[in-house]
Amino acid sequence: MPLDLNNIIKQCKSGNREAQKALYNKYSPLLLGICKRYLSNQQDAEDVFLEGMFKIFDNIKNYKGEGSFEGWMKRIMVNEALMHIRKHKKLKLMAEWTQLDQPEQPLILDQLAVEELKFMIEELPTGYRTIFNLYVLEGYKHREIADLLNISINTSKSQLILAKKKMQEYLKKKDFDEKVS
């Protein structure tokens, strides 16, 4: 009989291995995907994923059912990834943009292929990628990112603008290459 999520959570709280496996099967692709977005190295991503999963199972009894369970797990995984980046990548984020007051220009383009989107994220330097992930894909505000990474709001904004610029450069180069070929 398939268990619903509430039952799985309840049984995971009492350490039921079958329920833990069910939860793992259900969410592991999503959670490993998060790790891979932050860490380009597969081994690092898997290490962080394992550490995050371990923390999820170890702390699941503290989950009170307030808010989405998926969101709770994602937060744990994102925090784990950030901890890893801080520890191993020596993240040095500084405000590098002097025109922060200028309104952000939307970049309207044709639908890009999934592989291209993936490539563009992978090619970003760690700092840009971290801010990009937190802002664009996790939906954090610059103020929240600043608190989370202990940086200024302007640093967060500038890193995002630079990430976008980097992506634009890639797209321009791609256009040029296509025209030449």
Partner: peptide, 17 residues
């Protein structure tokens, strides 16, 4: 918009461990 394209493909890194 570029960022919208990313948001619509959040699962692009999802993979079976």
């Amino acid at each position: 918009e570029l960022f919208t394209q990313f948001q619509e493909n959040k699962d692009l890194f999802d993979e079976e461990p």
